[in-house]
Design a protein around this nucleic acid. Structure first.
Lengths: 229, 229
DNA sequence: TCAAAAGTGTTTGGGTTACACCCATGG
DNA sequence: CCATGGGTGTAACCCAAACACTTTTGA
């Protein structure tokens, strides 16, 4: 049987390969609302516009796609990004005028907003936090990034709805009130306290951190952490 | 502000780009069961093993990723693939010994099994249909393809559960019984007739094709098609 | 004694399953 | 008449939302 092309001489040198990038939808909770991190583009294309932070895939450095996303987070934002998840890949001819064909793998992350310095030195661009829902509807963003943000919001809210909680984003130990407030901020709507807590312990997601309390003016709240397994 | 690398000289020639491929999990319903299409590998690596059909991304031919998947379907299987959906991308260093770094974008398709000729001439390899659930658990498949099949099954069954129906896979007009049998085959479990139909028309998914019937030995069945928008 | 934290309880509803049962129809 | 297609009705269930309420606690 005759051989198919990529089996006979299958090195990547045989065909031109796409300009391959990682873009990251970095989310955070800021003042009770979900925000997304954008960077201002210093060069064409879309010079001066706001865009998702991203970077080129480096096959000499990156073990796999997830590692590439972690590296891009560290290089461009100076932080190890938690709650990282691949969302989708998009690729096509006219997505980015810098290359004839560009493939972007989109990731989502969730970080405490204080962890990112919006005025970093070195090779980092100016960054800002923007209300996520507004960014998702903002047609002025560079490339197709508004759409990507919308997709990330949908996926992320679905996770919270299903109580797939962002433990890597939360502090080691947290109160139920903090957890609920965090979920409410991400969903953009109010949750019923008792229903929320019932769901939590039906699923055995949390365990109390014994003896620990956190001080308020009144009764201190029990601290919890993720149940191990 | 100094520029970041991909803004200063961002052509894809600056860094080596990954060997980029499309792999397709082609599903079909065969004798009431869900099957997946595998091709036997003629060359190393994994010579003689069964693998998902796939092909190299051709940036000179493919307008975008979806177009690439369609082209690969036509070139390798000889068919326009319906119900095509991107599932995920996986990339890494040691996935495929033919290249230092390989990125695969995985697609799912659903075709009538008769549409594919398992003994094609030309550049096509030997193909066979395998029970999907068994393939997903078969560690002998090439690369990480068993895992990919598992992912495709999960996504596809989720769609059926939510009544996102494979209209492109069904005939133009079909009876409710056919539709239910198709869904049952894909889910691998029985569905209650009356509940299934109630859900269908609560959602207004179908419209009757007037005057049309299909003959059986008994009362003929009403034909339906997808409600337009 | 106050106000937040934690927990209890009940009602309500949506959506789904499972099952029983009806009528219609063409051979 | 029979087996299938189409349809009605209903009880049960799960899950979650909504709301009201009690108890605990530290300042």
């Amino acid at each position: 049987m005759p051989k198919s092309p990529e089996d006979t001489m299958p090195t990547s040198g045989r065909h031109e390969m796409p300009f391959t990038r990682i873009e990251i939808v970095v989310l955070s909770v800021i003042e009770g609302r979900l925000g997304v991190l954008l960077g201002r583009r210093a060069q064409a294309p879309y010079q001066g516009r706001w865009a998702l932070p991203g970077g080129v895939l480096r096959i000499d450095q990156d073990k796999d796609l997830d590692a590439a996303a972690r590296r891009v987070g560290i290089e461009r934002l100076g932080v190890e990004l938690p709650y990282l998840r691949q969302l989708t890949a998009i690729g096509g001819r006219s997505r980015d005028p810098r290359a004839p064909w560009t493939l972007s793998v989109i990731y989502r992350a969730l970080v405490p907003f204080e962890a990112i310095d919006p005025n970093p030195g070195k090779r980092l661009e100016a960054l800002k936090w923007v209300a996520a829902d507004e960014a998702a509807a903002d047609a002025r963003l560079a490339f197709d990034h508004a759409e990507r943000i919308g997709g990330a919001l949908e996926v992320t809210r679905g996770e919270i709805d299903r109580l797939e909680l962002p433990f890597e984003f939360l502090p080691q130990a947290f109160t139920l009130g903090e957890l609920q407030a965090c979920c409410e901020a991400m969903l953009g709507r109010h949750l019923d306290k008792s229903s929320f807590r019932r769901r939590l312990d039906e699923r055995n997601l949390l365990e109390a951190v014994e003896g620990q309390m956190r001080t308020g003016a009144f009764r201190p709240a029990q601290l919890y952490r993720r149940r191990c397994p």
